[in-house]
C-alpha cells in the first residue's frame, strides 16, 4: 500500500479507473438512480470534461470518481489505489493525498482568511510545514491572489474565490484534480482564463476532470475528451 506516499509516482496505472459505478438514493419509499453502471478509464495527464444538462448526474459522478460519494455498486481505483474498497478513514486519507476537489459552490469557510482556507487540508496532518506554507504562497502568487492572502473569504470576488478554491485543492499536490462547473457564472474572458489555467495544470502532468454544461469549456481545443452524460448514463459520442 502506498497510502502514505507524498505523491504517487507516475505508473502505468490510469489516473482514474471506474468500474460499473452506480449510485442510488433512497428516501422513504422513493428510490432514484442518479448514476447507472458507469465505467470509465481516465489516463494520466488528461483534461476531460463531463458534459450534460443539469440533473443528469454529473456532480454525483464526479463525487464517485473522487471517492467522495460512496457507490451503491461498483468501484473506483485512483492511481492504482482501490479507494472504494478501503475502510472509511483510510479512504479519506488516501483521497486527501490523491484527489483535489473544487466544488461549484467553492466551499470556502467564511470568517477565515484566504491563506487559512488554503491551509485547511493540512490541519489534520499537524498543520503546515514551512515548505507547505511556501507552496501555498506560491500557489496564491500563481493565481494572482498574493494581495488577498490575509483577506477574509467574504470580502473576495467570485473569481478570486474560485481561484482560491483551486489553490486549496492543489495545496497537497494531488495528481488528480476534479472540478464541478468551474465556469458557471463567469463571463467570456474569465472562461478563457479558467481554460488556460486547467490546460497549464494538465501540462504539468495532472489529470483533470471537470463537469460542465457550458459549451465554452466543453468545446475548447484544450480539452482532451468530452464525455456526455444523460440520465446518469454515459452517452457514446
Amino acid at each position: 500500500m502506498s497510502i502514505e506516499k507524498e505523491s504517487p509516482a507516475p505508473t502505468a496505472a490510469p489516473a482514474i479507473d471506474a468500474r460499473g459505478l452506480t449510485k442510488r438514493y433512497e428516501d422513504g419509499v422513493r428510490r432514484r438512480e442518479v448514476v447507472s453502471d458507469v465505467s470509465v478509464v481516465v489516463p494520466q495527464g488528461a483534461l476531460w470534461v463531463l458534459r450534460g444538462p443539469s440533473g443528469s448526474g454529473k456532480t454525483t459522478l464526479l463525487g464517485l470518481l473522487g471517492a467522495m460519494v460512496t457507490p451503491t455498486r461498483g468501484e473506483v481505483i485512483v492511481c492504482g489505489e482501490p479507494l472504494s474498497r478501503l475502510r472509511d478513514h483510510h479512504r479519506t486519507r488516501a483521497r486527501r493525498r490523491l484527489v483535489g476537489f473544487v466544488f461549484q459552490e467553492l466551499a470556502l469557510v467564511p470568517g477565515m482568511t484566504l491563506t487559512e482556507n488554503v491551509l485547511l487540508p493540512l490541519v489534520p496532518e499537524g498543520g503546515a510545514t514551512n515548505a507547505q506554507r511556501a507552496h501555498a504562497a506560491a500557489l496564491l502568487e500563481r493565481f494572482g491572489l498574493t494581495a488577498f492572502a490575509d483577506t477574509r473569504i467574504e470580502r473576495l470576488s467570485g473569481g478570486e474565490r474560485q481561484r482560491g478554491a483551486v489553490a486549496r485543492a492543489l495545496v497537497l499536490s494531488p495528481p488528480v484534480l476534479l472540478l464541478d462547473e468551474p465556469t458557471a457564472h463567469l463571463d467570456a474572458a474569465r472562461v478563457l482564463e479558467v481554460v488556460a489555467m486547467l490546460a497549464a495544470l494538465r501540462d504539468e502532468g495532472r489529470t483533470i476532470v471537470a463537469t460542465t454544461h457550458d459549451p465554452r469549456l466543453a468545446d475548447s481545443a484544450s480539452v482532451d475528451r468530452v464525455l456526455d452524460l444523460a440520465d446518469g448514463k454515459l452517452v457514446e459520442n
Binding site: 467522495m68 472509511d88 478513514h89 479519506t92 486519507r93 483521497r95 486527501r96 476537489f101 466544488f103 466551499a107 470556502l108 469557510v109 485547511l120 487540508p121 490541519v123 489534520p124 486549496r168 485543492a169 497537497l172
Partner: peptide, 16 residues
C-alpha cells in the same frame, strides 16, 4: 453544517 461539509470534502477524517 456547511463548515463541517467543507472539512469532510477536503479530506478530514471522521475522527479528525
Amino acid at each position: 453544517r456547511r463548515e463541517i461539509g467543507v472539512l469532510k470534502a477536503i479530506g478530514w477524517e471522521v475522527s479528525e
